[in-house]
Design a protein around this nucleic acid. Sequence first.
DNA 1: GCCAACGTTGGC
DNA 2: GCCAACGTTGGC
Length: 155
Amino acid sequence: MKYWLMKSEPDVYGIDQLKADGTTCWEGIRNYQARNFMRDDMAVGDRVLFYHSRSKPPGVAGIAEITRAAYPDHFALDPDHKYYDARSSEDNVRWVMVDLGWVETFDRLVSLAELKADDALDGMLVIKKGQRLSVQPVEDRHYARVLQMARSPRS
DNA sequence: GCCAACGTTGGC
DNA sequence: GCCAACGTTGGC
């Protein structure tokens, strides 16, 4: 099983919404690196740190899991949809999506500031300056450490 | 809301 | 294939 971090703006789609929905399709990824991770490396059962971006504060809000592996993002074919991509066609959709299922909402948000301050998370992608990738791989030990932080009081 | 950092596009 | 212009992301 692999571990990931996926970003979402809670104003748009937060972990509470995922919990309410149970599962959702993760459409609208329009970055090749993120797409390639989803298409080539994600598998059903992989665990995801669900990260709230552009919020106060930003941070990891909980856990999701991959419930369906990559399949074509058909929203790319709909001219009226915000995720329409004119370069995609029925037999060649350039973008993929996966399905996410809710697993857990942390009792407390583990903020970006905390992630940055924790020595055990050195090298984690999300804390790197200018890192905009909305789908990122997470090392096993980093994933375990974030869970540990979520389950202990803020120090 | 600002703007630095980054990815993509397209003219040449 | 270079790179300037542009659009987007996301912390602050």
